[in-house]
Amino acid sequence: HEITLHINGRRVKLRFRDEKAAEILKEAAKKGLDEEELKKLAEELWR
């Protein structure tokens, strides 16, 4: 699955395995994680 989040006016595509991962990524984006941090988090969730 993929999700596209808008971060600092940019579109960031993240891959994720399940809905739980999608929710975690959305929450992290709301908390203000930047693009690099979100990509790292997405990679961690993928494993």
Rank of each mutant, 00 (worst) to 15 (best):
H1S: 10
H1Q: 13
H1W: 15
H1V: 09
H1G: 15
E2W: 15
E2H: 14
E2I: 15
E2T: 14
E2M: 13
E2V: 14
E2F: 15
I3F: 07
I3L: 15
I3R: 01
I3S: 01
I3T: 02
I3Q: 02
T4A: 05
T4C: 07
T4W: 10
T4G: 02
T4Q: 04
L5K: 00
L5E: 00
L5H: 01
L5C: 05
L5V: 09
H6K: 10
H6C: 15
H6M: 15
H6Y: 15
I7W: 03
I7A: 05
I7V: 14
I7G: 01
I7Y: 03
I7Q: 02
N8R: 07
N8E: 06
N8V: 03
N8P: 03
N8F: 05
G9Y: 00
G9A: 03
G9N: 05
G9M: 02
G9T: 02
G9H: 04
R10H: 12
R10E: 06
R10V: 13
R11W: 15
R11M: 14
R11V: 15
R11G: 11
R11N: 14
R11L: 15
R11F: 15
R11K: 15
V12M: 04
V12H: 02
V12R: 01
V12Y: 04
K13Y: 06
K13N: 08
K13S: 07
K13F: 06
K13G: 03
K13I: 15
L14H: 01
L14A: 01
L14W: 02
L14D: 00
L14R: 00
L14G: 00
L14T: 01
R15M: 09
R15T: 06
R15Y: 14
R15L: 07
R15V: 06
R15D: 01
F16W: 05
F16N: 02
F16I: 15
R17T: 05
R17D: 02
R17I: 10
R17Y: 10
R17A: 08
D18H: 06
D18K: 02
D18Q: 05
D18L: 03
D18A: 04
D18G: 10
D18R: 02
D18W: 04
E19H: 12
E19F: 12
E19W: 13
E19T: 10
E19V: 10
E19P: 13
K20L: 09
K20N: 10
K20I: 10
K20Y: 12
K20R: 13
K20P: 08
K20C: 06
K20D: 05
K20V: 08
K20E: 08
K20Q: 11
A21M: 07
A21K: 02
A21H: 15
A21F: 05
A21P: 01
A21N: 06
A21R: 02
A21D: 15
A22M: 13
A22F: 10
E23N: 13
E23S: 12
E23W: 09
E23P: 03
E23F: 10
E23M: 13
E23C: 06
I24L: 11
I24N: 04
I24C: 08
I24M: 10
I24E: 07
I24P: 01
I24A: 09
I24D: 04
L25E: 00
L25V: 06
L25G: 02
L25N: 00
K26G: 05
K26Q: 11
K26W: 10
E27W: 08
E27C: 09
E27S: 12
A28P: 00
A28M: 09
A28D: 01
A28V: 04
A29D: 02
A29T: 05
A29Q: 07
A29L: 09
K30H: 10
K30I: 10
K30R: 14
K30S: 14
K30P: 01
K30N: 13
K30V: 11
K30Q: 12
K30G: 10
K30C: 04
K31I: 08
K31W: 10
K31A: 13
K31Q: 13
K31H: 13
K31P: 01
K31G: 12
K31E: 12
K31F: 10
G32N: 06
G32P: 03
G32I: 04
G32L: 06
G32V: 04
G32R: 04
G32H: 05
G32T: 04
G32Q: 05
L33T: 08
L33M: 15
L33Q: 09
L33F: 14
L33V: 10
L33K: 08
L33Y: 14
D34K: 10
D34W: 06
D34M: 10
D34Y: 07
D34C: 07
D34T: 14
D34S: 14
D34H: 11
E35K: 05
E35V: 14
E35W: 10
E35H: 08
E35S: 08
E35P: 09
E35Y: 11
E35N: 05
E35L: 12
E35A: 11
E35R: 06
E36F: 13
E36R: 12
E36W: 12
E36V: 13
E36H: 14
E36A: 12
E36P: 10
E36L: 11
E37M: 12
E37F: 10
E37W: 07
E37D: 13
E37I: 08
E37H: 12
E37K: 11
E37A: 14
E37P: 06
E37N: 11
E37Q: 15
L38A: 02
L38Q: 01
L38T: 02
L38Y: 02
L38I: 14
L38C: 05
K39V: 13
K39E: 06
K39R: 14
K39H: 11
K39M: 12
K39G: 07
K39A: 07
K39N: 07
K40D: 10
K40A: 13
K40N: 12
K40C: 05
K40P: 01
K40I: 12
K40V: 09
K40G: 09
K40Y: 10
K40E: 13
L41R: 02
L41A: 01
L41D: 00
L41M: 11
L41P: 00
L41F: 06
A42I: 04
A42L: 04
A42W: 05
A42D: 01
A42H: 02
A42Q: 03
A42T: 03
E43M: 09
E43V: 07
E43G: 07
E43A: 09
E43W: 05
E43R: 09
E43C: 04
E43T: 07
E44G: 06
E44M: 10
E44Q: 11
E44N: 08
L45W: 03
L45Y: 03
L45N: 01
L45C: 02
W46G: 02
W46Y: 06
W46P: 01
W46N: 03
R47V: 15
R47I: 15
R47H: 14
R47Y: 14
R47Q: 14
R47F: 15
R47L: 14
